[in-house]
Write a protein that binds this DNA or RNA. Structure first.
Lengths: 215, 215
DNA sequence: GGCAAGGGTGAGCGATCGCTTAGGAGCGGT
DNA sequence: ACCGCTCCTAAGCGATCGCTCACCCTTGCC
């Protein structure tokens, strides 16, 4: 039954670090199921079935169903943070770095929508300890974007009266891509990324040269 | 029992139109529970308990648990559409009407976050028929905002290369307020509405006079 | 071969789910 | 009093949930 390639192509391999092969297949199955139906509506039998295993096999690699969500959420947030850090600490003006940060962040949410949906929208299905850990990661994500904006304000490139509020809005805009993307395939992740980068530069009052717009 | 028949004009209470009193209490309890835990994680016993009734009482007024969600979602979307229509069809320039539309839409999502969360994020817990009905309402919401933007482009007030994409982004920005608002009470719905109206005017390239920015 | 160890399965446990059924309290009309 | 009607509850049905347990199969090392 197993086809050679399932859900191939657009999605990168962020799960390469999950070491036992069966554990990775279970995790990938859980990501699909959680994204389709939501955490609470997904059964452990469904996850195991997608991975081609019996329901009991899940509990060899994971203590509970919640541990699966926790692992997915942590790895996903680390990946998102890594994407933003790469863009934020690159060479170039704040304008260019903000455009690249938004563009790549949006591409990740659109292209890896399956993963991003779970990561961004199933947060409060976690227990208190796990949720606190994830929230700490989110604060780092916020700080990264805010840093670029503050730098642009200092250099005079940006005109932003409310830095914290604008940061929140920029992140909110990017994250929500995971909710609506792919309802119809009329836009590619790259197109949405370019559009959103332009919109965000407008939001911060930056000069949008063709170089920055073309990305 | 109802002394007065409330016609469609009652704006103060969103659930005023739910006619049997017990049915309204159940609906309100369901909104709270769905917003806190999500649809699938909420039990019918929990809903009935919050309304001070036995689990069976729910099925006197609603056929299934899903019907509760359907009713909440439809009423909520109609309210959201009404808010946007009021702003879109008011007097004034596209700039002013867009600012008012965003501002009031955001205020609704922030102030009525409990309701808005259910309305905006539990959509695909509905069955196919109910979901199709809600999606139709969403298209009307989208058309309302797009209409203002198109008008602003025609009049030369706005500079928007991608009207459909920008409309999507504006709505996405507003809707996502329901996800993050109230995590800390440092901002009032009015403040967020004003901030977002300003950000959206920037996104469409409008002249932001103090008159449009204020209020 | 012997044999421990770890990855896997079939069956099922206790709990809980959405929902149903049988019945009753209150109440106005006649 | 009796009826019919609305609103509600106690009890519980069948199904399904997360998770466990007893056991099996493969693998590598001696």
């Amino acid at each position: 039954m197993s086809t050679a390639e399932e859900t191939a192509g657009a999605e990168a391999q962020p799960w390469g670090e999950v070491t036992p092969d069966a554990a990775r297949r279970l995790l990938l199955a859980a990501v699909e199921a959680f994204a389709e139906r939501g955490y609470h509506a997904t059964t452990t039998r469904d996850i195991a079935g997608r991975a081609g295993m019996s329901p009991a096999a899940l509990y060899i690699h994971y203590k509970t169903k919640e541990e699966l969500l926790h692992r997915i959420s942590r790895i996903g947030h680390e990946k998102a943070l890594d994407i933003l850090r790469t863009a934020a600490r690159a060479e170039g003006s704040p304008t260019r770095r903000l455009a690249e940060a938004v563009s790549s962040f949006v591409r990740w949410h659109a292209g890896g929508r399956t993963t991003a949906r779970v990561v961004q929208y199933e947060l409060d299905s976690l227990g208190p300890d796990a949720r606190a850990e994830i929230i700490a990661l989110r604060r780092l994500v916020d700080a990264e974007v805010r840093g670029i904006i503050e730098e642009g304000v200092r250099s005079g490139e940006f005109d932003v009266p409310d830095v914290r509020g604008t940061t929140l809005a920029v992140l909110s805009l990017c994250i929500d891509v995971a909710r609506w993307f792919n309802v119809n395939g009329s836009r590619t992740p790259e197109e949405v990324g370019a559009l959103y980068a332009d919109l965000v530069l407008r939001m911060v009052g930056a000069e949008r040269t063709d170089a920055a717009r073309a990305e």
